[in-house]
Amino acid sequence: MSEFEPKIVAFFCNWCTYGAADLAGVSRLDYPPNFRVVRLPCTGRLNPKYILEAFKRGADGVWISGCHPGDCHYIAGNYHARRKFMLLHHMLEAVGLEPGRLHFSWISSAEANKFQEIAREVVEKVRACGPNVNFRKAELDLGLPEVA
């Protein structure tokens, strides 16, 4: 395979986008297998550090998706998240992150088609950016997390 296959970390909220991905499965809507999903209760749980951590660890792209405004299972988690994302997104692109590496979407649990569409778009846009060289650590301090 000559084409570059990007690695993408996706953070989905349990109630909406994770559900949309489930429904995309039920409906057998195929999309590229390039991303790995971290399930969160709510996009409100997403610490901006996770986005930086994924890039630092070599992710070529990051995709965050949750409930539409007003649909949040926790009333306002996604509203608080949106403010953080806005700032972080602005900052990262201002310091030279390629537009196309970091994606945000609202996908309700009924929107399997939108899920498929955005999944494809995310993978293609990240692919077009090429490998992440600027936001990854040169050497990873690999090793297992400590277990208490």
Binding site: L40, R45, A81
Partner: peptide, 30 residues
């Protein structure tokens, strides 16, 4: 929901079941 945990600058709130180290381990494994 964990909104407190992601909003705190010093990571004082811990959302049980979705802890920072657990989610970091997932990111690393991904």
């Amino acid at each position: 929901c964990g909104t407190c945990a992601s909003s705190c600058r010093s990571d004082a709130p811990i959302l049980r079941g979705f802890t920072n180290d657990g989610l970091f381990a997932q990111i690393a494994a991904a």
